[in-house]
């Protein structure tokens, strides 16, 4: 219990709850289950992407190409759906994830085999992947008329009161929770983030582990490519432009340390929900979109400050009474 209260995830959850309750005073109905479900559904894609970004950031890297990967993959599946409506949509979802893995693996391979810093590699692929969309689509849009109805419906269909899109986010979050806490891959990702040198000495291949992290973030980006195109019923060069920074913001707010090694799945989920709640709450209480951006920005800086303070420790345990107390 004590550790729960002390954790940053707990306080983030409290802040989100306070925001919801406060907004509810100004605009009754904001905290109704239906509205909360719709906020969650609006945040589902950001949530999934934040989990992918988290795995990469934990390894002391960053994936700036996620939004471009998403847009490119989204365009690919949209074009395929338009051209061959007979191909079942679940197959397209698998294909989207696979395309994402390929694009992520390209990032990961450059980081692993050539030792180029991740920020440089993904800054490059951010532009490359975005440019590829133009090449394959010839500057065309794919809009609602071209998509099959099941392509559009597979994010909207209701299951136990929630749209499928929300369920995808829940399943991915649960899966990543298991991955990060209960598998040797997850353990290695944390280990190389906290101390790469000691990890090498412990027999962990640091480069390969980073590669795996990039494949995971690529897979989620690709999967979200389908989700995005299906949900907003549009495939274009402009899809999710600039969104990579929102994803990083969600991670930072969720307490994932940019220095690597520190952060949890729960934190990433809450970080995304925080942004989701702010984005829904501010229009409701009549705050202009410009203030919305400023407030999101302030939240990021505040989160970093709080996390930095949280990481300052009370020094080493040398005294005997302190040792028995801990």
């Amino acid at each position: 219990m004590k550790t729960l209260v002390r954790s940053r995830e707990f306080w983030l959850a409290v802040i989100i709850a306070v925001m919801i309750v406060a907004t509810n005073f100004r605009s009754p109905g904001f905290a109704s289950p239906g509205n909360l479900a719709s906020i969650f559904n609006d945040t589902a894609i950001l949530l999934i992407l934040a989990l992918g970004q988290m795995t990469v950031i934990l390894t002391r890297s960053i994936d700036l190409s996620m939004a471009s990967n998403l847009a490119l993959t989204g365009m690919i599946v949209a074009l395929i759906n338009a051209a061959y409506p007979a191909i079942p949509v679940p197959a397209l979802m698998v294909l989207a994830a696979f395309c994402g893995v390929v694009l992520g693996a390209f990032n990961g391979a450059l980081v692993w085999l050539l030792g180029i810093p991740a920020i440089v590699v993904t800054l490059g692929t951010l532009t490359i992947y975005r440019g590829l969309i133009f090449l394959i689509a010839g500057g065309q849009w794919v809009n609602a008329d071209a998509m099959s109805s099941s392509f559009v419906q597979l994010t909207r269909t209701d299951l136990l009161g929630l749209p499928l899109l929300s369920w995808y986010a829940i399943v991915v979050a649960a899966g990543f929770f298991l991955l990060m806490t209960r598998t040797s891959v997850g353990r290695s990702i944390y280990a190389i983030g906290v101390n790469p040198t000691a990890s090498i000495y412990a027999g962990i291949d640091v480069g390969r582990t980073k590669f795996v992290a990039f494949c995971l973030s690529g897979m989620l980006s690709g999967f979200c490519g389908y989700l995005w195109v299906s949900r907003y019923v549009i495939g274009s060069v402009e899809v999710a432009k600039g969104y990579e920074l929102t994803i990083v913001a969600a991670c930072v707010i969720g307490g994932i340390s940019i220095a690597g090694g520190v952060g949890t799945v729960v934190g990433a989920v809450l970080g995304a929900l925080f942004l989701g709640v702010i984005n829904s709450a501010l229009p409701v209480i009549n705050i202009s979109p410009f203030w919305q951006m400023a407030i999101s920005g302030a939240a990021i800086i505040l989160a970093v400050v709080l996390n930095a303070r949280g990481e300052k420790r009370g020094g080493r345990v040398i005294l005997r009474q302190a040792e028995s107390a801990s």
Binding site: T183, S184, R187, A191, V194, N195, A198, Y201, A202
Partner: peptide
């Protein structure tokens, strides 16, 4: 720097190179 990973719990430090033995199909 090279030996212990100070920010990981003791048990995770000890099991780190033995994860193959304490996991099955990648699950710990």
């Amino acid at each position: 720097k090279q030996g212990v990973i100070v920010d990981l719990p003791i048990f995770q430090n000890i099991s780190l190179p033995s994860l193959d033995r304490t996991s099955q199909n990648g699950f710990l």
